[in-house]
Computed example of a mutant assay.
Amino acid sequence: MSSFDHPTLIQNISQSMGALRKAQPEAMQGFGQLAKAAMAGGAISEKHKELIALAIGITQHCSGCIGFHVKALRRLGCTRQELEEMLAVTVYMGGGPGLMYASEALTAWDAFAPAAEAQA
């Protein structure tokens, strides 16, 4: 079980990046533009791109990535079943370490549950 509080983790990361945005505005704007262009819907939907990004974040062992992409998937209407199927592929490709971070992604999924779902 993950010891991360993903909502707080991504809030802290966002706040910490403020100093970098001030120090390196062009680089940070460039990264933001790259992210926006890469994640825009096209032949592959935004939701599917977020699933891919989450799989990469898991295999790269990035807890912040897990938090940001799970939150985006919730916003995009991803179902738990879609998430779990993607996690199975991630574990297949990433082995034991992938399994540990897949578990973390499920914890993040629950942490970002809408209030009505969390009470059910």
Rank of each mutant, 00 (worst) to 15 (best):
F4S: 14
D5I: 11
P7W: 09
T8S: 11
L9Y: 01
I13T: 07
S16Y: 12
M17G: 09
M17D: 13
M17R: 15
M17V: 12
G18S: 10
A19R: 14
L20I: 15
K22D: 10
K22T: 08
A23M: 11
Q24V: 09
P25H: 15
P25L: 13
E26H: 08
A27C: 08
A27L: 15
M28G: 10
Q29V: 10
F31Q: 12
G32F: 08
G32K: 10
Q33P: 06
Q33W: 07
A35C: 06
K36N: 12
K36P: 00
A37F: 03
A37Y: 01
A37S: 04
A37P: 01
A38L: 10
A38D: 01
A40Q: 15
G41M: 00
G42Q: 05
A43T: 06
S45W: 01
S45G: 11
E46S: 12
E46F: 01
K47N: 09
E50L: 04
L51Y: 01
L51M: 06
A53E: 11
A53R: 09
A55L: 05
I56K: 03
G57Q: 01
G57D: 13
T59L: 15
Q60P: 02
Q60G: 07
Q60M: 14
H61G: 02
H61C: 07
H61V: 02
S63C: 04
G64V: 03
I66F: 12
G67I: 02
G67Y: 05
F68R: 00
F68P: 00
H69E: 00
H69V: 00
H69W: 00
V70K: 00
K71L: 07
K71H: 03
K71I: 00
A72C: 00
A72N: 03
R74Y: 01
R74I: 00
R75N: 03
L76R: 09
G77A: 09
C78M: 09
C78S: 13
T79W: 07
R80N: 06
Q81C: 02
E82M: 02
E82S: 05
L83V: 02
E84R: 05
E84M: 08
E84P: 00
E85L: 06
M86G: 08
M86F: 08
M86L: 10
A88M: 07
V89I: 12
V89H: 05
T90V: 15
V91H: 11
Y92A: 14
Y92V: 06
M93C: 04
G94C: 07
G95H: 06
G96N: 06
P97F: 02
L99K: 05
M100Y: 10
Y101M: 11
A102H: 07
A102N: 05
S103P: 09
E104C: 10
A105E: 02
A105C: 05
A105S: 14
T107L: 09
T107Q: 13
A108R: 01
A108Q: 04
W109Y: 03
A111I: 05
A111G: 12
P114F: 10
P114K: 09
P114D: 14
P114M: 08
A115N: 02
A115D: 13
A116M: 02
A116L: 03
A118D: 08
A118T: 14
A118V: 12
A118C: 04
Q119L: 14
Q119D: 14
A120P: 15
A120R: 14
A120G: 15
